[in-house]
């Protein structure tokens, strides 16, 4: 879980200009915090699919699953089992 989280944080810091000092809790909304928007999400989801060799089914593509670090980590864990 920690490794996935680190990958995601590294991606967000590199791609979305999230400052290294930004305080981000696992349940914070990435869109509401102004870290990513809909176009960024497309790239982000592409990165996740490629990095973990997974396909994300339509029903999982929701804010509950992809708008926070904890949601994303859960989905990745579920799909890579």
């Amino acid at each position: 879980m920690e490794e996935i989280k680190e990958d995601i944080m590294a991606y967000l810091q590199n791609k979305s200009f999230m400052d290294s000092g930004t305080q981000l809790n696992d349940d914070d909304s990435l869109t509401m915090k102004g870290i990513i928007d809909s176009i960024g999400l497309i790239e982000f989801i592409d990165f996740i699919c490629e990095k973990y060799s997974i396909e994300i089914p339509e029903e999982l593509l929701t804010p509950e699953n992809f708008d926070s670090i904890s949601g994303i980590v859960n989905v990745i864990q579920k799909l890579t089992k």
């Binding site: 791609k15 979305s16 200009f17 999230m18 869109t31 102004g34 870290i35 990513i36 928007d37 176009i39 960024g40």
Partner: peptide, 11 residues
Amino acid sequence: TNAYSKFARYR
């Protein structure tokens, strides 16, 4: 200011 994400601000 800051209405859009940082990502969008660079785009």
